[in-house]
Design a protein around this nucleic acid. Structure first.
Ligand SMILES: O=c1ccn([C@H]2C[C@H](O)[C@@H](COP(=O)(O)OP(=O)(O)OP(=O)(O)O)O2)c(=O)[nH]1
Ligand SMILES: [Mg+2]
Length: 597
DNA sequence: CAACAGCGAGA
DNA sequence: TCTCGC
DNA sequence: GTTG
């Protein structure tokens, strides 16, 4: 009973807070049955609108009945047109309902009174025939007063809505107190879509400007909340010694350093001795991720990685608890697995239609947890539903088209073939280029999720000549079949994400990532592209803790941070090889196979 | 109670 | 800005 | 989820 919908809770709390400092919200929606259709709404925006329905006295209809004589106000995202509405709901079976753009709600909130529906109407079965035939039901009546506000468009900005949105967005943390959530939101600046109307509030939006009366007294004094922790001076720098690397890293306690995954080899051992545990926890991690519970999922994944690298078989709760990354709650779960062989929690949250559908939808490249949930809310259950009814981005269309291929693993041998294909094309363009496959392939995995190719050139310049011509060539030969991201510019580095297929019969489409990098950045780029993702995050975190910063471009020292933000960029360290990066960070070198965290 | 990596692109 | 991906 |  602990958690449920934290976002909803948050919204409720915010409203409650407002109500304490203001007169109760006008109940101008009372008596109205309202449904917010999830189509094209972001998850958060959808929740925000739903919360407004109840806040202003409306009866929220969480899911629309298929067939009803009832009068429902169905609110759609502003870009949804009549065609789309008809595709999404069987309008003929809801003869008395009104289908409106969400601008109706926005305007109503702004006016603190029910706005006319006319100017926000997308479709109404009745109105098509004769506007005034309704049996004196609410919506029909409104139409008459519609004109009143009709002309008044929305120049409004619903900062109220906007703020709530960003607030909930940042606050994906499980049990975060709303106080801190609001504090965080204070610093958020907004420039929401024009059509997000507003009225009052403005909450935190611009504390520099209109400090709205209705702000919570305590909440937005975010000054102290955003205290300053200068991470740096804790170590070496505190002594104000030279800015040298050595002085920066040496004072770092070794026992602390051991807590970082990147400091230890990943179990290059044949198998995982605690599979029974990790497999169960993995299910939970994936499910939490699909539910947008990011940090809980991250917590699970870290623990899983820790268990994988634990050399012995875990036999007791105590033993588990001693492993860094495993706390009381996970230790309990492990204990349950140890004695019963299973976890009730898994059955509870991982099984069932919702979790399975979300997993299905997450397999669509370009669809993440938010989109998957939004689709589920729209009653989509199959890939065919997505194909025929959903609004798909270009990426998602491609992801759907190649759903099976993209979600199947690639044998090493085929990766090698693809590497050779790309190398050949590259070398035919520029002699002397270096082409290598990184990612899971370089880490020695037996199968790979995609092919990550890194290209550079020792002359330090030719890399610039490679990118476009290579893509053109591979495309002309029919090797590249779909482009996802054709050019991601990251400083001097360029990245391509797409889909390819080797010539010949019976070949699958494969995801291909190519980065072309300047020679000076080859080592950091190689580190990055070799991963694993977990390993990278661990190493980057360690770098941060040492007052440095590691990215695919460079390793920098002398970084000064205040909280998140960097006050000083520091200076770049020389990183000719991967070994040098480990050395700068005070770590023992790990070959790629040992970075598989 | 804040942090949990550090990037760029598409809509 | 939000969402997604590497 | 766990950690400092
Ligand atoms: O969030 C991420 C994802 C990836 N990477 C790096 C590490 C990773 O090894 C490399 C390639 O990414 P990919 O998604 O292909 O991971 P992989 O390690 O190659 O695994 P897979 O077999 O699924 O492709 O990019 C990151 O730094 N952060
Ligand atoms: Mg890969």
């Amino acid at each position: 009973m602990k958690r449920k919908s934290k976002e909803a809770l948050l919204l409720a709390k915010q409203h409650k807070a407002e109500d304490e400092t203001h007169e109760p919200p006008p109940q101008f929606l009372s008596g109205l049955k309202c449904h917010v259709h999830p189509a094209n709404f972001g998850l958060m925006r959808h929740k925000v609108f739903e919360s407004h329905i109840t806040r202003y006295g409306g009866e929220l209809v969480p899911s629309l009945p298929e067939c009803s004589e009832g009068v429902f106000h169905v609110v759609f995202e502003e870009t949804v047109d009549e065609e789309k509405v008809k595709r999404l709901v069987d309008t003929a079976r809801l003869p008395n309902s009104v289908f409106l753009r969400c601008t109706w709600l926005i305007e109503s909130i702004k006016a603190k009174a029910k706005a006319g529906t006319q100017s926000h109407l997308i479709l109404s079965m009745n109105s098509v025939e004769e506007q005034c035939r309704g049996t004196g039901e609410s919506w029909v009546q409104e139409i008459s007063w519609t004109q009143v506000e009709e002309t008044e468009k929305s120049h409004i900005k619903d900062t109220d809505v906007a703020v709530t949105k960003s607030e909930s967005q940042r606050n994906e943390n499980p049990d975060m107190k709303d106080a801190s959530a609001r504090t965080t939101a204070c610093s958020a600046s907004h420039e929401q879509r024009e059509d997000m109307g507003s009225q009052k509030s403005t909450k935190e939006t611009k504390e520099d400007k209109i400090v709205e009366d209705e702000r919570e007294p305590e909440e937005c004094s975010r000054d102290e909340a955003l205290g300053n922790k200068s991470v740096l001076h804790k170590w070496g720098a505190g002594a104000g010694e030279e800015d040298h690397l050595e002085s920066l890293i040496r004072p770092f306690p070794k026992n602390l350093q051991d807590k970082f995954a990147c400091a230890r080899p990943s179990s290059s051992k044949p198998v995982d001795l605690n599979t029974h545990i990790t497999s169960e926890l993995s299910k939970l991690a994936a499910t939490y991720k699909s539910k947008n519970d990011t940090w809980r999922s991250v917590g699970y994944e870290r623990a899983i990685a820790a268990i994988r690298n634990y050399s012995k078989e875990i036999t007791s709760r105590e033993e588990a608890l001693a492993i860094p990354g495993i706390g009381g709650r996970l230790a309990d779960k492990i204990a349950e697995i140890l004695e019963s062989g299973r976890l009730r929690k898994v059955a509870e949250v991982c099984e069932g239609e919702e979790a399975e559908t979300l997993r299905l939808f997450l397999g669509v490249w370009g669809a993440g947890p938010s989109t998957a949930q939004a689709w589920y809310l729209q009653d989509f259950r199959t890939l065919d539903d997505l194909r025929t009814k959903a609004t798909l981005t270009r990426h998602q269309q491609i992801g759907l088209k190649h759903y099976d291929d993209i979600n199947s693993r690639i044998p090493r041998s085929e990766v090698a073939e693809i590497e050779e294909h790309v190398r050949e094309a590259t070398l035919s363009l520029v002699r002397g280029a270096e082409v290598m496959v990184c990612g899971s392939y370089r880490r020695g995995k037996p199968t790979c999720g995609d092919v990550d190719v890194l290209i550079t050139h020792p002359d330090g310049q030719s890399h610039e000549l490679i990118f476009r011509p290579l893509l053109v060539r591979l495309r002309e030969s029919g090797f590249l079949t779909d482009d996802l991201v054709t050019q991601e510019d990251n400083g001097n580095q360029k990245k391509y994400l797409g889909v390819c297929r080797l010539p010949g019969e019976g070949r699958k489409h494969r995801r291909l990532d190519v980065i072309v990098v300047p020679y000076q950045e080859r080592a950091t780029a190689l580190m990055y592209f070799t991963g694993s993702a977990h390993f990278n995050r661990s190493m980057r975190l360690l770098a941060t803790k040492k007052g440095m910063s590691l990215s695919e471009h460079s390793l920098r020292a002398g970084i000064v941070r205040q909280g998140q933000e960097k006050l000083s960029d520091g200076y770049m360290l020389d990183t000719p090889t991967e070994e040098s990066i480990f050395a700068h960070l005070g770590l023992e070198y790990r070959p790629p196979e040992e970075r598989d965290h």
